[in-house]
Nucleic acid binder design. Structure first.
Lengths: 222, 222
DNA sequence: AAACTATTCAATAAATTTATTGAATAGAAA
DNA sequence: TTTCTATTCAATAAATTTATTGAATAGTTT
């Protein structure tokens, strides 16, 4: 094998991996699986895809070794193959947000049109935690909280929030977080909280961004 | 715009960027441009592509805002749009090396079959520099050295190395580096050096990996 | 064993991407 | 202006990717 053949092989293998990511539905699946494992049916539902279609996309990711599989009873659960997958997704996400004005505008306009609140970054949240003056609120579905959440965060899925407001302290600031910068659960939570007179902001990034930085995480029994 | 429309727009924009990367030739172009800017003709030559074909791929990258353009006289020079592009390339590269056994095998086998030497990582090189017992050798083409190189590195392009051996000290260890883990300039240099009785190893990563970590860099005049 | 269910497979048409040509263009040089 | 040259464009055929459909499969449950 000469130099050129070697390069051709390497780049074509890398392009195969990149191609497996280069589809809107598959990117959405990857972001979902960054929260934990899901069955085909659940993935299909969350991404609004027909099941056969979701399965087909999952096969593409499986062949590229982007996801791993594990069967439990009748269901087959998919999960990200490892931390590098999320790192790559995040690099793409940041590249997109920085380079493509369209994406930044989409995110800002969508958020602003509905919830014109400030947000905090992970670094800012860490400082608030050190000062001890913050309540961290996980507003994702409870199953995702159970699979892993920011240490000391309280679980209060969006659909329960309004009824459980009294459990939250009014004296300290509340920071709500969800799946990531493209997820609006936290925005909706902040809107409810602010309206009810709480001091609340959203975390810009999501739980997987926290975890990948090896910041303190807890997992619930179950 | 509702939540689903918002998500569809965001993921489809991100997929567009990802698709612009998802081609072996374009990945190779990106790795080349990580060394500095090049004209269309130079890019075509380095990647063994017909000029019209290289130009076509560059248009794809330009539309996706992965590269920027700058005209000088008759030539049009392309460069990476910003640091996030290289970060994304690196994430893909690491994902590939880790997940795809084929790539790791390709790299190891190709290197081992020709140059069975050890290599050092950037972290290891930093320690050697602190101890002051290392000569750093940049074996890329001189133009790439001039556009930026590791601080205190000596430029000795591969094709000049054999004739200029006497310029190198025999008492200290030599670490040669080149474009990155898929580039074999440094392997070839180490082979020549070891044969001539020098103590030499290659740097596993390349200059852009050094630069992105904000380690000390120098740029030559001109 | 039979019935059931979550998932995968297979076949097809439509859409997209790619390589290959040769012509067109835009700016530099004469 | 005319000529020259690096680059881009345009058209086409081949290859690949995608959505859609309905059937097949593998493992559970009855």
């Amino acid at each position: 094998m000469n130099k050129r053949e070697f390069k051709d092989s390497v780049y074509s293998e890398l392009a195969k991996i990149t191609k497996s990511l280069a589809n809107p539905h598959r990117l959405e699946i990857i972001e979902l699986l960054a929260q934990g494992e899901y069955s085909v049916e659940q993935i299909a539902e969350q991404t609004h895809l027909p099941v056969a279609n979701a399965s087909q996309h999952l096969q593409v990711l499986k062949v590229a070794q982007i996801v791993d599989v594990n069967r439990q009873g009748n269901f087959i659960y998919y999960r990200l193959a490892n931390a590098n997958v999320f790192k790559t997704w995040r690099a793409l996400r940041e590249l997109g947000i920085e380079r493509i004005a369209t994406i930044e505008k989409l995110v800002k306009n969508f958020r602003k049109s509905k919830f014109d609140f400030e947000s905090v970054t992970i670094d800012q949240l860490i400082k608030k935690i050190e000062l001890g003056k913050v309540t961290i609120l996980d507003v994702r579905p409870e199953t995702e909280y159970n699979k892993g959440h920011i240490a000391n965060a309280i679980s209060m899925p969006l659909d329960q929030l309004s009824k459980r407001l009294k459990e939250l302290p009014k004296c300290t600031e509340i920071v709500a977080y969800c799946r990531g910068p493209f997820c609006v659960f936290a925005d909706e939570a902040v809107a409810i909280l602010v309206k009810a007179g709480y001091k609340a902001t959203r975390l810009e990034e999501g739980f997987p961004d926290w975890k990948i930085q090896e910041l303190p995480v807890e997992i619930s029994m179950n």
